[in-house]
Computed example of a mutant assay.
Amino acid sequence: MRDVEPMPYDRYLPWKRWVENGFWLAMIGGNCIANSLVTLMDLRRRGSAIPAWEPVLWEASSALMWLLLILPGLAWFTARYPFQWGRGGRQLLRYLGASVAVCLVHVAGMVALRALVYARLGMDYDFGPWPRELFYEYLKDVRSFAYIVLTMEAYRALLRRWQGEASLLSEPDEGPALEPVERPERFLVRKLGREFLVAAADIEWLQASGNYVNLRVRGHDYPLRSTLAAIEAKLDPERFVRIHRSYLVNLLQVASIEPLDSGDARVHLRDATVLPCSRRYRAALRARGGVEPG
């Protein structure tokens, strides 16, 4: 029997972390080198005899803090609160507040690093008047912050398209619906320009992820723009049960429940996947047919 050739997205997965980390290392590292050279050239043009290591230290300390923020700080933030066009007000305030927090951590960290190196060399580092310099740094940092957010969101959008993005079937323009959209039996998945249907019964489990819910089907995740509560209301309650604020599971996939001393539990699935079960939902899962070891 001929093996099924893995899809491009599946072949990319083992390299995903290396590519992501390598991209930011290359971008920030390259920017650090370029800025160091430009700063040193500007100083030399003005007749400054400052040692070359000083502008290199300034840029390297800044770059190091950006790497520490991006990996994993900003990656977590943008995944937890995805940026969406047309969503003003609350989202704008959240991102504005995040940009200020990023700037404060960035500046405090790089100044501390510079001061430490200068002190080791028996020198003093003068950052300058804090209000003025902090405002100057924020004007630079907010642009970097926006670039990082847009880059991460564009990358995630590309991955969703490559991986396959699910959507609910909607009412047709003409004629009756093939199935009730209030409780769909299938989901429409778009993947690399192709469309196919995924049966709701084939979903093994669902996980909330920011403004998306990942549908796990035969080892693949298909993101669906929705909330977990909204999807739970549309799925068959006889088949799917909530086990955690971020997880729903197909009861037919549950092999056993492992109780924990904390009152929570681990749900073991037939494919050896282990999902968390909070104490709030554990009793309901047992009542619905989950099996705990004796």
Rank of each mutant, 00 (worst) to 15 (best):
Y12F: 10
V249S: 13
G164C: 10
A208Q: 10
A201N: 07
E54A: 09
G47D: 08
A146Q: 05
F145Y: 02
L215N: 02
S256V: 09
A115Y: 13
L116W: 15
L139F: 07
D236I: 05
E195H: 14
E185G: 06
D126S: 03
L169I: 10
R2V: 06
W53H: 06
G128R: 00
S226Q: 14
Q84F: 09
L74A: 03
R90N: 15
R242H: 08
L134P: 00
R120T: 15
Y247F: 15
G193N: 06
I203K: 01
Y125F: 13
G219F: 09
R280I: 12
L43N: 05
R280C: 14
R288A: 15
W85Y: 12
L134Y: 03
M27W: 00
L121A: 12
D42E: 03
E258S: 11
V267I: 11
F23A: 00
V111E: 06
G30A: 01
L150I: 00
G47K: 10
K16N: 01
L43C: 10
V105S: 01
R280D: 15
L25M: 09
D261H: 12
E165L: 02
G210W: 12
L248C: 12
I33G: 02
L93P: 02
E232F: 09
Y136N: 07
W130R: 10
Y281I: 06
E174P: 14
V105T: 03
S278N: 09
E59N: 05
W85P: 15
R288H: 04
A79T: 09
A287L: 11
A34C: 06
V111A: 08
P131C: 04
M152P: 03
A154N: 11
L92T: 12
A146N: 08
L96Q: 07
H268C: 08
L224Y: 15
W76G: 04
P8S: 04
G30Y: 01
S209T: 07
F196P: 05
D3A: 10
V249F: 15
S262R: 02
A283G: 13
P131F: 01
T151V: 05
L235T: 01
G73D: 00
G210Y: 13
Y147G: 15
R46D: 02
L64P: 01
E258I: 11
K191F: 04
S278M: 10
L159A: 12
T151D: 00
R190N: 13
R17D: 00
Q253I: 03
Y81D: 05
Q163F: 13
A119S: 14
Y12K: 12
Y155G: 04
G193Q: 11
R156L: 07
L188V: 10
L116S: 03
W15K: 03
S36D: 02
L67Y: 00
G219S: 08
L113V: 11
T39W: 03
E174L: 14
A98F: 01
W130T: 14
F135P: 12
V189H: 03
C277W: 02
Q91V: 07
A154V: 09
R186Y: 05
W76M: 06
L169W: 06
L158K: 11
